[in-house]
Write a protein that binds this DNA or RNA. Structure first.
Ligand code: ZN
Ligand code: ZN
Ligand code: ZN
Ligand code: ZN
Length: 507
DNA sequence: TAGAACGTCAAC
DNA sequence: GTTGACGTTCTA
């Protein structure tokens, strides 16, 4: 079977060389860019029974992902991945199963991401008004294996003021959705897997009638969701509504790996700096130390309660104290404040970003179906992060050698962070924006710490270790078909120039 | 349209 | 007040 797939691939002459990017391969659902699997939820049976075709993007991306992971072998395996080999094999089987998929049939307008809501955990927290409310934390992992560094909390049903537990279920089918975004057009393979990973907090299946309407909507408005130009050429109606004033400034996190670097003294921005003999006209930060996790400034203000973010670190904040900026409408809210102000928006749910801290897609914009702005409309610092993750070949950006003492230092910081997080767990079990606080011990880990990568892998399986893969040998060298890996060598294509990106995306 | 320039803001 | 640099406009 692997051979068959490889042969078909040869017919298409590979991903990188000639496979055209067909706009019809783009799926309308643009917030679902993460790799997820169907589960056992009874509510989803009707969906499960339908065969889900994958797009060319999804297949190409998946194949490239498999290819890259194969090459990495035992390196850089996310710690929350229980059975990486089985996962990889499952992905490769998936490729084979879907090799004959029809891209046209993959456009259904229906979400194929589903969750299990069986398990719920309730916590009592105190909100800004010192009133105690019941929240329910969403967890991605099996509680037994869960630690807070890997879990996330997600807002659901704003009107209900609830957080709900989520647990990925073991897949019963190998249906995977990996929706492309416009950033795909800008980047190489796998861009769709890490461009801007949002994970939905709660996604109840709409009633059939609503589903049909939704589907019809996508069909009727397909062009709206299908870029026919490059992202920088697109113009959206919402452009006029969002002015510069709505664009709240972001500042560097001072914690991510690039932030920890020194100025390189060689890039154009460094050369312009007075300290390197320049005249200081450009006033931009060094190209090699551009932050990949820009945060809201301390002056950011909740639109409802008007409280400022203040100088406290994100890790010190209770969940209800964290400000979130919507990537579409640019509004900034505390979650409870959003509930209060928009209790009418109950048909949709917030979706949180794994890429940019303190960022989400607010229920209002989801309900309003606000189109995703083109990349060039994003704030440069945010755009940079999204593009950089793509530009970095699936996040695996090649980083300069750092001496062991430095690594020890960072490791120390990491340990401190973990202790702090454990302390925090005792009070806020679902407060986990930790994933956005990037700390690292080596160059690979820094990228892995970006939750999008980890979740991409981890979401394939549950953490209970009960992975159903009978008959699948685990020895990669003997069972893994190298034909699947033969298409490219991403690490080979990495070089220093990848670290430099044009101003359009760099600044 | 990409890169240069600069007003202005955030951090210190 | 000073420094760094974000977001936008300007320009070739
Ligand atoms: Zn530099
Ligand atoms: Zn940073
Ligand atoms: Zn507020
Ligand atoms: Zn919004």
């Amino acid at each position: 079977m692997n051979l068959e797939y490889a042969q078909k691939q040869q017919e298409t002459d590979g991903i990188k060389s000639t496979t055209p990017i067909n706009s019809s391969d783009l799926k309308p659902c643009r917030t679902s860019r993460l790799l997820l699997v169907n589960n056992n939820n009874n509510n989803n049976k009707d969906i499960e029974q339908q065969y889900q075709h994958l797009t060319r993007f999804e297949l190409d991306g998946l194949q490239t992902l498999c290819s890259l992971l194969r090459k990495l072998k035992d390196k850089s395996i996310p710690e929350d991945l229980i059975q990486p080999q089985q996962l990889l094999e499952s992905m490769e089987r998936l490729l084979i199963d879907h090799v004959s998929d029809d891209s046209q049939l993959s456009i259904t307008g229906q979400s194929i991401i589903h969750y299990n809501y069986n398990q719920q955990y309730t916590f009592d927290i105190t909100n800004n008004q010192n009133e105690t409310e019941s929240f329910q934390g969403i967890k991605r992992k099996n509680p037994d294996h869960n630690n807070m560094q890997q879990s996330s909390f997600h807002l659901i049903h704003p009107s209900q003021h609830q957080y709900e537990t989520l647990s990925m279920q073991q897949p019963t089918t190998n249906v995977v959705t990996l929706h492309p975004s416009t950033t795909v057009l800008l980047s190489g393979p796998l861009a769709s897997s890490n461009s801007s990973n949002y994970y939905p907090s709660h996604h109840p299946l709409p009633p059939p009638q609503q589903q049909q309407q939704q589907q019809q909507h996508y069909i009727n408005n397909y062009n709206q969701y299908t870029p026919t130009k490059s992202p920088t050429q697109q113009h959206y109606q919402t452009d006029k509504n969002i002015t510069a004033k709505d664009r709240h400034k972001r500042v560097r996190c001072k914690q991510c790996e690039p932030c920890c670097r020194d100025d390189c003294s060689e890039c154009v921005h460094c050369k312009d700096m007075p300290k390197f003999g320049g005249v200081g006209k450009m006033k931009q930060c060094c190209l090699t130390k551009q932050c990949i996790a820009p945060i809201l400034p301390s002056t950011a203000t909740c639109q409802v309660c008007l409280k400022k973010k203040g100088s406290r670190k994100l890790s010190q904040l209770k969940p209800e104290e964290i400000l979130y900026e919507c990537e579409r409408c640019m509004e900034i809210h505390h979650l409870p404040c959003f509930h209060t102000a928009h209790s009418d928006v109950s048909t949709s749910e917030g979706v949180f970003s794994d890429d940019i801290p303190e960022t989400w897609l607010c229920p209002k914009c989801i309900t309003a179906n606000t189109p995703e702005p083109p990349l060039y409309k994003l704030r440069p610092i945010v755009r940079r992060t999204l593009v950089t993750t793509n530009k970095g070949k699936n996040g695996l950006i090649e980083l300069p050698y750092s001496d062991p003492s430095q690594q020890q230092h960072h490791h120390h910081i990491l340990q401190q962070q973990q202790q702090q997080q454990q302390h925090q767990q005792q009070y806020h079990m679902y407060a986990t924006n930790i994933n956005t606080n990037l700390h690292y011990t080596d160059s690979y880990e820094v990228m892995e710490n970006e939750a999008k990568k980890r979740r991409l892998y981890a979401s394939m399986y549950t953490t209970n270790g009960n992975i159903d893969s009978p008959g699948i040998p685990t020895n990669p060298s003997s069972t893994m078909n190298n034909n699947l890996v033969a298409l490219d060598d991403l690490s080979q294509s990495l070089n220093d120039s990848d670290l430099y990106i044009p101003q359009m995306f760099a600044v």
